[in-house]
Amino acid sequence: MDFLGILSSSVSFILAPTTLAYALATLGLAVHFGFGGLLNMGMAGFMALGAYGYAIGVLTFGLPWYLAAFVGIGAAIVFALILGIPTLRLRGDYLAIVTIAAAEIVRLLLLSSAFGGVTGSADGLSGFNGPGGTITNPAEGAGGFDQSNPIPAGTYGFPPFLDNERIWYLRIVGAIILGLAIFIVWRLVNSPWGRVIKGIREDEDAVRSLGKNVFAYKMQALIIGGVLGALGGLMLAFSTNVNSSVYVTSLTFFLWTALLLGGAATVFGPLAGSIIFWVLQAFLGLLFPALAEVGLMPFSTIQASQIKFIIVGFALVLLVVFRPQGLFGNKKELTFVK
């Protein structure tokens, strides 16, 4: 068993594009739930729109990658508006069920063969990061995300961060987006706007009775968090193909686990939570099969590789019961409203 190799592979997830994507979406959840008290269980839908909006923008509309990215963000804003206008007056747990159902509708529409020509149906979409062009006219590609990479081809860094120019470009782009997002969210929640949003989390009627337009604030929070979710989806799309089977309800639940790990009402908690989530996932996902292989665990390697998901589920239970403020949250500032 190569323990060092496992450790090094796991550590490499600290800077993985997937981790950055999770951190962005989790930050969006923090804005929704941790600061705004909105129980959004449909974050996967926002991510799917970000990713598919970008891919479809390139493949169907033939847009340059940076404009296509705004199609994804715009789709998330429209989704937030459609979702928010009727639902933001609902009670917390109702909102959770509505958002989870809405995200499933988005996924089913993306999966349906009815729109297969645009969404790729069950096969998803690919090739939108390359020099590409549209599906119908592949020749007219002006260069996509990959062509915008200024880093010369080659391998850089040191183990476990020894990677090619594409991975490094993804990391840099992701880190810049995430850094900006964290800065903006930090500014927002420490401003008078953030004060109102946190007040709404505690008791929206009280804030309403003080003359604040609660609905507008909730809508703003829903859109900001939704855009962060779309950026997370965009980040996933930059790094790999898009497929509707990624944007399932479990994805939302994993984001929640990362959020509660780091602390829901914190600005850096989402990043910390995502890193811990992914490093642990990778570590356990490699460790258990390796242990099974050398006979230290009485299961098949396939079974052993699934134990990590069982652990995620029960870890979420234990977190909520014993440490609801997360690993880095303030014990006094529990985020759960009674």
Partner: peptide, 13 residues
Amino acid sequence: IRTFQLTKALGLL
């Protein structure tokens, strides 16, 4: 401006 029968102090602020 009104207040409420069950006080609505914003507890975690």
